[in-house]
């Protein structure tokens, strides 16, 4: 083939081939070096994040190990015998707090989400206001909700006093925006064609929501609710302000003015003390919380991934 080509053409072709080859090679060389360094950086970053977070878990487990035992759950806090001290009143307090949060937040959060997604006309200013409001509230620091709880719920207009129910209400307000946002996402994931199909049969709007949209968005909403509730479970800052007394040795009651405690608050209190026995107790408390929260979160993430691509 080549021999039949005129000499000039053959030369030109060869030249072009060489240029292309060298171009390809040079580019690949420098690109590859830069690319490799960059890739190493990326791996380093991921490793840092994972190692840092895993170190937290492992360190808490090691530090807290001496305190592991049933007394963590069955005993109350004690300043005299830290070896036998535990978290019982705080665990019970946290359970009450969370039940209250769920009771308040699920109906109100899901209700708001349904209104915003299914009824609200997004071109109207008042609906945009509500929407912007929810987004902003989701970013308000938890300690500010503590201030709200103190000035508005414990004292001020509601005047409930330093009772567990007030703490529950404060935490509910804190996570309500998160629940609304997550529920809206879940509702929005149900394709409009499902609503059209139902309405075209002569179903009313509420029948369509109740019997088509809600059942289809339950996994997504459950994910959001679980994540929000686990956040409420781990929050200590607002509870400091609404009177989660730190050393309660008796089992708390929801509406009693005798005081109450919660897991993260008691952990904080143990950790503040300089003696190492208390820090061991704090680490052991962290382990208890991590087990519960990581289980909850894993379940939520699993639930979402399981039902993610339904359509």
């Amino acid at each position: 083939m080549f021999s039949e080509m005129p000499e000039r053409t053959r030369l030109a072709t060869a030249g072009a081939q060489a240029t292309v080859a060298s171009n390809l090679q040079r580019q690949r060389g420098s690109e590859q070096l830069k690319g490799n360094i960059f890739f190493a950086l990326l791996l380093l970053a991921v490793a840092f994040a994972l190692i840092g977070l895993i170190a937290l878990i492992v360190q808490s487990a090691i530090k807290g190990a001496p305190a592991f035992g049933l007394n963590l759950i069955t005993e109350g806090p004690s300043t005299i015998n830290p070896e036998d001290a535990g978290f019982r009143p705080a665990i019970i307090g946290s359970i009450y707090l969370i039940l209250g949060v769920i009771l308040l937040v699920v109906p109100i959060g899901v209700g708001s989400a349904i209104y915003l997604e299914e009824y609200a006309d997004g071109t109207k200013w008042w609906n945009r206001l509500i929407e912007l409001n929810v987004q902003n509230l989701a970013g308000v620091p938890s300690i500010i909700y503590g201030i709200l709880g103190l000035a508005f719920i414990v004292r001020g207009p509601l005047d409930l006093g330093f009772i567990l129910a007030a703490g529950s209400l404060t935490l509910a307000l804190l996570v309500l925006p998160t629940v609304i946002l997550a529920s809206r996402e879940a509702i929005r994931a149900v394709p409009p064609s499902i609503r059209d199909g139902s309405l075209a049969l002569g179903a009313t709007q509420w029948q369509t929501i109740r019997r088509q949209v809600l059942p289809a968005s339950i996994p997504g909403m459950a994910t959001g609710v679980i994540l929000a509730v686990s956040r409420a479970l781990g929050e200590a800052a607002p509870l400091l302000l609404v009177g989660a007394a730190q050393f309660v040795t008796f089992n708390p009651q929801p509406f009693s003015a005798d005081g109450y405690s919660a897991m993260p608050v008691l952990i904080y209190n143990y950790a503040l003390r300089p003696q190492d026995e208390f820090r061991v107790l704090a680490a052991a408390g962290v382990v208890i919380m991590l087990i519960v929260l990581l289980l909850l979160n894993s379940f939520a993430v699993w639930l979402r991934n399981r039902y993610e691509q339904q359509w």
Binding site: L56, S60, R231, L233, G234, A236, A271, V286, L293, N297
Partner: peptide, 8 residues
């Protein structure tokens, strides 16, 4: 989802 008190 790790509580901030654990980070503290």
């Amino acid at each position: 989802g790790i509580p901030t008190v654990a980070f503290g």
